[in-house]
Design a protein around this nucleic acid. Structure first.
Lengths: 363, 363
DNA sequence: CTGAAAGCGCTAACAC
DNA sequence: GTGTTAGCGCTTTCAG
């Protein structure tokens, strides 16, 4: 009935190709010391050539000591953020196939795991996240998915992404833009905003207004946009942008980001922008819906660009793609380094612009 | 003799306690034929007494004649539906610990896996889903997460859930209710609606109006509600409810569900309802946001009840809880039955009412 | 430094 | 019916 998968690559295949024993292959794969650089290279070459991926189940079974790694994330919102789920899938895959066992421990309101774990993956750290100090004090090895001086961390390059978005928009003639984002309190959000805004500054274009929402869902963006649209169309009342706690936002952003009004009339309906950069694809979705419901067309009236390149968001959205697989892979490498007490390092994964149908030249 | 690691219970322990061999234990655990009822009972007793749980990794490794089970779901929306992700987690856990390997094969626009798999888990089947016939024709063992005469299926009892919601609302005096739901084309949605509506019918209360949205997200509900609120407040134009293809919706629902207007003035702002039953918690979230943005208070002006009891949705929502773990567990059992060619059966998992803060007595 | 061999916990031939 | 035994793919002593 069921066909056996005889084509499964094993350590034996790799050992054979590399001309070594399976034990050596295993050593190399587990970054174990005591293998000559030459043999190591041979093994890695064989792995590469064969496209070998260790079997997760076998690894788990063999590894007697299970390192459980806890997931520290914002309280109660895990499954509500699709991007996070997507990333998590990659992370679990990487973790599992590197022999580690991800334990999905419940986290308290402070975002820390309620049960003790051998290590931690930290998500969405704030500028002054207390969790980091806590983890350091308790000497729990951890890696931060994000960016932070002096801690082991990895993330997509938000600043570069914001820049790419700005350059794309400017190239299309959108000298007046709006930036819709989550709370700038978050490092990821403020990086993206910083890159975007500074590119506009450097181009000598008016500094984009920043519209923050505390709800990262499409609905959150929709509500914020709709409110903003209503306020703006009256042309008088300035929308109040809620900023994070003082000091957590880069100065260049904190200074009356919302208080500027463009002198020249631009865009449809007297809007002060002709393009929107949303900090995530999901936010972009909400932005587009709000724009559409307000009778504006995308991209002919307003261009919209997102960030992440979530596959589910649709195949029309112009966005900044981040290499989720690479981030996850790096995160796991860093975790191993943490477990082995290697020196701390942070890595930023490059992003790229994906032009699709929601951006167009300014009319 | 093999001395077992004190920390881990194994088949050996069970075999020892039951006074049989490990092979027999394995047979019992895998519902394999050829074990006398007496021995089977002894083994099960031992398992029970020891609290033994088979090791997932070992099972997977040993079961190398992999049965890959594909996931057939709506195209491109997987991660966008939190509830689905939650269910999936349970399902994967069950599948893995029963030795099956869930292969997350990409599905085509028709919802069928693009790569051949040994079996399938089918999600969200429609009344006349072509995928079912296709699977049957190709003789691929499958189980449907949903409800459908004549196929192996399991789901929470939507009809009973709708009923519970109605009874709760009626008990609070809400004789006029609105039902916000996804496309009734979906069996789950129409079951919930049917239970809800028929309970109102039987109570002699006005039949609740049904508001459908093709977007199951909170944003979808928000937009639908907001549009409805705007239309209704003028008190003239009747909102057009889009119904699924003819014949797919129970007659009792299809008949001008939206064409009735209550004679008596009820609720705030001349709304024709004082309570809303949302077909999912996520929809409920959108409904609450829309109500709130329209200046209505929940629950003092309008009561809202959801369905699913998603942990992330917040701890304030009154809802109908479904036992996700039980559904997942049953799904896997059914899949094994399918693999073994056992007779087809369908199971409905009971649901329960969870009263929290979004419902209150009608004023 | 590298290889041979003994399992990790479980399933499934194959014997009895 | 039930027990024996040989692996599943990998890690890891322990020799060489």
């Amino acid at each position: 009935m069921v066909v056996t998968d005889s084509s499964r690559l094993t350590v034996h295949d790799v050992a054979m190709v590399a001309g070594v024993s399976i034990a050596t292959v295993s050593r190399v794969l587990n970054h174990r010391p005591g293998v000559s650089p030459a043999t190591r290279a041979k093994v890695l070459a064989a792995v590469e050539r064969l496209g070998y991926r260790p079997d997760r189940a076998a690894r788990e079974l063999s590894n007697r000591r299970h390192v459980t790694v806890g997931l520290c994330t914002a309280y109660g919102h895990r499954r509500l953020i699709p991007f996070f789920m997507l990333f998590l899938e990659h992370l679990m895959e990487e973790l599992a196939s590197s022999g580690l066992r991800l334990k999905d421990v419940p986290t308290g309101r402070d975002g820390l795991p309620l049960e003790p774990t051998d290590a931690c993956m930290l998500f969405g750290a704030h500028a002054d996240d207390p969790r980091i100090a806590d983890l350091q004090k308790r000497k729990v090895p951890f890696v931060l998915i994000g960016r932070r001086e002096g801690v082991r961390c990895v993330a997509a390059d938000g600043v570069a992404g914001g820049r790419l978005a700005a350059e794309h928009l400017l190239r299309l003639g959108h000298t007046n833009a709006l930036h819709v984002t989550g709370e700038l309190f978050s490092q990821a959000m403020s990086d993206r905003a910083a890159g975007f805004v500074s590119a506009y500054d450097e181009a000598g274009a008016p500094r984009p207004r920043v519209l923050e929402t505390d709800d990262l869902s499409a609905l959150g963006a929709y509500r914020a946009m709709t409110r903003d649209l209503a306020t703006r169309s009256h042309g008088t009342h300035l929308h109040h942008v809620h900023m994070g706690p003082a000091g957590t936002v880069p100065d260049r952003l904190a200074m009356n980001a919302s208080a500027r009004t463009t002198a020249e009339p631009s865009g449809a309906r007297g809007l002060d922008y002709t393009a929107v950069f949303a900090a995530t694809d999901e936010l972009a979705n909400g932005v587009i819906a709000a724009l559409t419901d307000a009778g504006l067309r995308v991209p002919s009236d307003v261009s919209v660009i997102g960030f992440d390149d979530m596959p589910e968001i649709g195949d029309e959205l112009t966005t900044i793609r981040q290499d989720i697989a690479a981030v996850a892979k790096t995160a796991v490498e860093l975790l191993h380094e943490a477990l082995n007490g290697a020196p701390v390092r942070g890595v930023r994964v490059p992003v790229s612009l994906v032009v699709r149908g929601t951006t167009a030249e300014r009319r």
